[in-house]
Every structure is written in C-alpha cells, then in structure tokens.
Simulated scan of single mutants.
Amino acid sequence: MFQLLWILLIGCVLGLLARLLLRGPQAIPWWLTIVLGALGAWLGNAVSGWLGVRHTSGIDWIRHILQLAFAVALVAAVAPAWSKSRPNR
C-alpha cells in the first residue's frame, strides 16, 4: 500500500517539475501528469540500473536526473498529442 503511495507521490513531483521545465502550456490533465511522472521515474530507474549507477554510497544524483529527464521527455511528447486528440471544449 505504501509503495503505491510513493509511486503516486514521486509521479506527482516529477510530473509537476517536468511541466515547470517545459515552455508553454501543457494541456494535459493532472492524472496524466502523475502517470507520466511515474513512468519517467520507472524508466530512469531502469536506465540507471543498466548503467550501473542506480545504487551509490550517497545521493543517487544520476538516477534522479535520469528520472526527471524521462519525465520531461514524456510530458513533451504526450502533451501535444493529447491536445490534438481532444477538441477544445
């Protein structure tokens, strides 16, 4: 149960940071922001594991940067597609 809460919390933080780092408005709902942030965290963990930098003796800066980079890339890719698929209401 707590793992699901952590996934949602990290997804929310990464998704919001990704939206803040991107220029212009991202017309995606909050739930999609959380999902993309969580997916970015998962991809960042996977890539950092493949690179061998997932677990270090200190703060895992490379892992966190990868997580944020994937979240930014996902929000940047999905936001235009989402706004094109949804007509203005």
Rank of each mutant, 00 (worst) to 15 (best):
F2E: 15
L4N: 07
L4W: 02
W6I: 10
L8Q: 05
L8E: 04
I10K: 06
C12W: 15
G15L: 01
G15H: 07
L16I: 15
L17D: 00
L20F: 13
L20K: 15
L20E: 12
L20V: 10
L21V: 07
L22N: 06
L22M: 04
L22I: 07
G24R: 10
P25L: 11
P25H: 13
Q26K: 15
A27T: 10
W30I: 09
W30Y: 13
W30C: 02
L32G: 04
L32I: 05
I34Q: 02
A38R: 05
A38E: 00
G40S: 09
L43Y: 08
G44V: 05
N45I: 10
S48P: 10
G49Q: 10
L51V: 09
G52E: 03
G52Q: 09
H55N: 13
H55P: 00
T56H: 06
T56Y: 08
S57F: 11
G58D: 12
I59S: 08
I62C: 06
H64E: 15
H64F: 07
Q67C: 13
A69G: 11
A71V: 00
A71C: 02
V72Q: 02
V72L: 04
V72H: 08
A73I: 03
L74E: 09
V75R: 04
A76I: 01
V78Y: 05
A81R: 12
S83R: 14
K84H: 13
K84F: 04
K84C: 04
S85C: 08
